[in-house]
Design a protein around this nucleic acid. Structure first.
Lengths: 155, 155
DNA sequence: GTGCTGGCTTCGGAACTTTGAAGTCAGGTC
DNA sequence: GACCTGACTTCAAAGTTCCGAAGCCAGCAC
């Protein structure tokens, strides 16, 4: 059994490598990136729609869309609007979809604490009930934040 | 019954005000802010510990800690280490704790897609099982991201 | 009253981002 | 082959953010 430094030291990520949160934030932790992902989740595919709906400059949109594509959150997909020719747009990959809990979590938190704007909401396609993000353990217990602890894995 | 613009127009947030995600990102959508919240969640209270564990300059830490405090995610709290005098530190408020699904979600996503570093993990204090973030509707159905739709609220 | 520690603040400069306006380019239509 | 549309790219200017090093100040202990 290897000796391990105490948890206080292990949570000092500089000692054990970069924190996954940090890596994730490097990819999606900017206003434009997060809003582009939100739009992609809404089903937006066209470049100009991203630009207009997110409200950013084309150059900014292009840079972030490329970065998200290279990082594997978006992929180029051909789409065709009725009576128009086929074009290349963007759609979410699995990795992009798997970030939706974060996007929805930010939305939920924003409605409650930062905004109050509840003009739109997320709902379950199947039953129509409103959607929330929650934290649970593998045993199925629903958790509040003070029931969650950090620990060294594989002990 | 009022006429409402179609959903395509409603999702163009410029038409109906600012998106809650945007507001949330303005507060917590930067690397330093998110990592400071992570640290606060780990129980860090002291200024110098934030600086060292997050790996940012004191000026940056001070600016973000102040912003997070003013935004209501952190509050000043007195703490006392054994054999030392009482000092002022930072601790999470309810609003800060309620952002934990986002922090944990970023961690989880980062481990799976951006990093692979699984030296630490989150666990349930009560039963020890590992913790995950998931999306569910009010009826209790666990949802994948393609079962979640946006709609105009209060219809 | 001297020293020490924790918690910041100040400063200048470097690095990174975003913007608006304009231009490019390829595919397809008429 | 002229024209149109969508999807970008280019560019200079402006703004934002970060860092490192240094310094400051308040509360104690001695």
């Amino acid at each position: 059994m290897e000796l391990q430094p105490p948890l206080d030291d292990r949570t000092r990520w500089s000692a054990i490598g970069q924190c996954p949160i940090e890596k994730a934030m490097g990819l999606v932790g900017s206003r434009p990136a997060m809003l582009l992902l939100r739009e992609a989740h809404y089903g937006t595919q066209r470049f100009d729609d991203f630009v207009e709906r997110v409200g950013i400059a084309p150059a900014t949109a292009a840079a972030h869309l490329r970065a998200l594509t290279e990082a594997g959150l978006l992929e180029r997909a051909t789409y065709q609007e009725p009576g128009d020719r086929a074009r290349e747009g963007y759609s979410l990959t699995r990795a992009g979809s798997d970030l939706m809990p974060v996007v929805i979590g930010l939305f939920e938190w924003g409605v409650r604490y930062a905004d109050g704007n509840d003009a739109l909401e997320y709902s379950h396609v199947g039953c129509g009930a409103p959607v929330t993000v929650n934290v649970a353990c593998a045993e199925g217990h629903l958790l509040s934040s003070d029931e969650v602890a950090v620990r060294v894995a594989h002990d």
